[in-house]
Design a protein around this nucleic acid. Structure first.
Length: 834
RNA sequence: GCCGGUAUGGUGGAACAGGUAGACACAAGGGACUUAAAAUCCCUCGCCGGCGACGGCGUACCGGUUCGAUUCCGGUUACCGGCACCA
């Protein structure tokens, strides 16, 4: 009988739909395991082949965990608020909620077709009022705990989406979503004080099992640095504070620079001799975006403030004061001390403006570049610091500054507070009202959810107001505090809001009294293993850790961290149609290189509609079946690395499943494991089990292929096949259950293969009785010998010397040394006889 | 520039507490079965030399440690990812 994957897959999916073998039971006495994958954004394009990679991997892990006796929760949901849906809705004049509903239906169909062991009864949708009621509730708790505040700040404004963006959403100076131009714009925005958690977000990483690059990237993004704030007296009588991590270089200060945005400049207007020049520079700087400033960093610009001097508190030297846009208002104090001898930026600035350069750490050539000294550099020209190492000098100067009252230690972060408002329609309404008398007031919790009203038009407005602002009867309300007239906040939350806590909602998804019950959270929390994309490291992953920590602080969750373990998958790329290697002629090659540049040199690129290299999982499943899709996407390569989709290679996975299926014609009725296959079966049980938990699915599948190949050469019994099917089941559950049933194992055990205990292996049976050992002579392989396992060294050496191919090299030679590596190799070191 | 990562056959990739490099696949070639094709099954498949048994060379490049290095150490190059005037 032929392997009819379409019929088999439909049959089992229909059964599972009814019998729900993946239902997670809160409170079950078995140990729990919470496996999580990042829930998808239900785009109109449907599932992409990129999705099944992490989904299948975690599906396999959770299936293995079930077979290991765990009570598993493996949930799924939809992160359904967001701009693409809104843009699509605007273009096609369909309400975003309808678009979302349809897209979710399509995603659900596709995900079910892939046979994942999701507990569908726990499915969540962030745009459902029953869900975002609690997103709003958490926001209100933050507001009440002073973690949400409104501030007028220059924000990143995407001119195309007409929406403000968080720093994390601006990539290379353009909008992460649409690639549109991002400009700076002053706007009043809701902000969340993530910076208050900066230290904990770094320090608590130590106890987590995250892959190292995720930890490093988060630490770098938060960017903690320890330093000192040093007060400089100004001739105007003011004191200006600078931040430095290198207090040791204070004697090398030859000037000071203030950011052009610094408000103190206005105060000095009358004292500055060249105000016109200063004003012009400031106006110029204001026009540039942060990105443009960064791009132009080659050439330092600035203006010296005439009539103003600063006094270095370490040595009372008077130094000039400049403004320059290389100093950012958003970091530190907005002022820096210039130490051109030991900071490259300062050096370039000093060269440009002819400022003196003082060497305070020995060893560099200040005429060529700044000498950025290491911790063990030796101080010179620095009074009481002379002779100390940089490390010692930093400490000494810190103490000195503290003692003399001109400095105090300070920790700074690159992390900024999170811009939390969006001027768009399709997001959670912010549940606050503004009253002229009472200011910003939270709406009563009994009013939640504050439902997104229907509007005539959800088009973004050019003036930067949310479409909700036009809904006057919704906007105008009464103040919950004083009962007077008030207006609602019309900005909505960013699309990241709903995903900050969705893993908690899965624990108790239908609760209408609370975001989730205490019992459910106590039982299921924290997530044991969370897999997701690297691109979310400084976005979703950081944001949700922040929210979780807040929920911990207010006693809503019992763990400090949401996710115990974090892994990350590589992207699936497509064939690059413009690769030069595909060109037939020289001219064609030239054309490709001219046209596409370095892109033409890559064999694979991100899949995109315009390149026509997008692979739709639907098509693959239709042609080869779900199990083949699952096996291939796991076999494609190292899980953490990018991989290129290959239509040819898919066939190999299909061929493997065909070979599995055809074992049915080969299998004998013997219910026992055969002697011939015993060792390889035990080895494979061990290998596959270990590989799954390390996400080495490619080698696990290779081991299964090897086992099947062995079955073909050795023959196999029902006992052999029974073991094999349990191992195959996490990878290809449909074919495994069908074969399981056809062989009568379902009847025999009264259970499906996926419900069996993971087979046990006997370590003693995974080792072979005889070993093939390599024989080297002077480190070169000369032959192999077969000896009983664990043979004594002298036995091995005797056998090695007797081996014909080896013996040839030993004539007229003395063996001066032998090295034996048990069961692996023997190396004979020889030299000519005297 | 800074911080991570990667480099192995025609291709995807295995192996590394240092111990027979190329598992498992894909592609290619040859054969069997077939009227034929598909499917299936069997064989070959790193490079160079040799009819051959064999020999030499091979894990980006240069060097080191070692009986032995794809694996460890130092240096170089290329590519990928992140950050980037963060004081």
């Amino acid at each position: 009988m032929k392997y009819d994957f379409a019929a088999i897959e439909k049959k089992w999916q229909d059964r599972w739909e009814v019998s729900k073998p993946y239902a997670a039971v809160t409170g079950d006495p078995r140990p729990k395991f919470y496996g999580l994958i990042e829930f998808p954004y239900p785009s109109g394009a449907g599932l992409h082949v990129g999705h099944p990679r992490p989904f299948t991997a975690m599906d396999i892990v959770t299936r293995k965990k079930r077979m290991d006796g765990y009570n598993v929760i493996f949930p799924i949901g939809y992160d359904a608020f967001g701009l693409p849906t809104e843009n699509y809705a605007i273009k096609n004049h369909i309400h975003p909620s309808i678009v979302t509903r349809d897209n979710i239906a399509n995603f659900t169909r596709q995900l079910k077709m892939l046979g994942y062991g999701f507990d569908w009864d726990r499915c969540v949708n962030t745009s459902d009022p029953n869900y975002y009621k609690w997103t709003q509730w958490i926001f209100l708790q933050m507001f009440k705990n002073d973690l949400a505040y409104k501030a007028t700040i220059p924000i990143n404004w995407c001119t195309s989406c007409k929406v403000g963006l968080a720093n994390e959403e601006v990539v290379d100076g353009v909008c992460e979503r649409c690639g549109g131009e991002v400009i700076r714009m002053e706007k009043s925005q809701w902000m969340l004080r993530i910076t208050k958690y900066a230290d904990r977000l770094i320090d608590d990483l130590d106890d987590l099992d995250y892959i190292e690059r995720v930890k490093i990237q988060q630490k770098n993004w938060i960017g903690r640095s320890y330093g000192v704030e040093v007060d400089f007296r100004i001739t105007t009588g003011d004191v200006v504070t600078v931040f430095t991590t290198r207090a040791d270089t204070l004697f090398g200060v030859t000037y000071m620079v203030i950011s052009p945005e610094h408000p103190i400049l206005d105060k000095w207007k009358d004292s500055i001799g060249n105000w016109d020049e200063v004003e012009a520079y400031r106006a110029d700087a204001a026009k540039k975006s942060d990105f443009e400033r960064g791009e132009l960093n080659k050439d330092k610009t600035g203006v010296c403030l005439q009539g103003i001097r600063a006094v270095n508190p370490a040595n009372n030297a008077s130094v000039p004061v400049f403004i320059s846009d290389y100093v950012l208002m958003g970091y530190g104090t907005g002022c820096v001390m210039g130490v051109p001898g030991h900071d490259q930026r300062d050096w370039e600035f000093a060269m440009k403006f002819g400022l003196p350069i003082i060497e305070v750490v020995k060893g560099g050539d200040m005429t060529k570049e700044a000498f950025v000294a290491k911790e063990d550099g030796i101080m010179v020209n620095s009074d009481f610091l002379n002779g100390l190492t940089v490390k010692e000098a930093i400490k000494a100067m810190n103490d000195y500054a503290l003692e003399h009252g001109f400095g105090k230690t300070k920790v700074n972060y690159k992390l900024r507070d999170w811009v939390f408002s969006r001027q768009r329609y399709w997001g959670e309404p912010i549940p606050l009202v503004h009253c002229d008398k009472c200011g910003w007031v939270a709406i009563d919790e009994s009013e939640l959810p504050l439902v997104l009203p229907n509007v005539e038009s959800y088009e973004p407005t050019d003036d930067g107001e949310s479409p909700l602002a036009k809904m006057t009867d919704w906007v105008n309300t009464t103040c919950p505090k004083c009962g007077g007239p008030a207006i609602r906040e019309t900005d909505t939350m960013p699309n990241w809001a709903g995903s900050c806590w969705y893993y908690l909602r899965y624990m108790d998804p239908n609760n209408d009294k609370a975001p989730f019950s205490k019992e459910a959270e106590d039982y299921w929390g924290p997530v044991d293993w969370y897999n997701g994309g690297m691109e979310h490291t400084t976005l979703h992953l950081l944001y949700s850790r922040f929210w979780h920590k807040f929920l911990y602080d207010i006693g809503v969750v019992h763990t400090k961290e949401p996710y115990q373990k974090r892994t990350s998958h590589g992207m699936i790329l497509g064939r690059n149609p413009h690769y030069v290697g595909y060109a037939e002629t020289e001219e064609e090659k030239q054309r490709l290189i001219e046209h596409y540049g370095s892109e033409a040199l890559r064999t694979s690129v991100k899949m995109s509609k315009s390149l026509g290299n997008v692979v739709n999982p639907d098509d693959v499943i239709k042609e080869y079946g779900t199990d083949t899709m699952r096996v291939y996407i796991m076999f494609i390569g190292d899980f953490e690395k990018t991989a290129t989709w290959s239509d040819d290679a898919v066939k190999g996975s299909k061929r493997f499943l065909d070979r599995c299926w055809n074992l049915l014609d080969l299998v004998t009725d013997d219910p026992n494991v055969t002697a011939k296959n015993e060792a390889i079966i035990h080895k494979t049980i061990k290998k596959v089990g270990e590989d799954i938990l390390q996400l080495k699915m490619n080698t696990a599948i290779a081991a299964l292929m090897t086992l099947v190949n062995e079955f073909y050469s050795n023959g196999l019994s029902k006992g052999d096949l029974e073991n094999f099917l349990m191992l195959l089941s996490p990878f290809a559950p449909h074919i495994a259950e069908e074969m399981w049933e056809q062989c009568g194992f379902a009847e025999k055990h009264g259970r499906m293969a996926m419900q069996m205990d993971w087979p046990k292996y006997d370590e003693s049976k995974t080792v072979d009785a005889v070993k093939q050992m390599a024989v080297q002579v002077n480190g070169k392989l000369r032959g192999t010998i077969t000896v009983p396992a664990d043979s004594a060294d002298d036995v091995v050496v005797t056998a090695a010397c007797a081996e014909e191919k080896v013996a040839r090299y030993l004539e007229n030679m003395d063996i001066v040394k032998t090295i034996v590596v048990k069961n692996k190799l023997v190396n004979l070191i020889i030299k000519p006889k005297n």
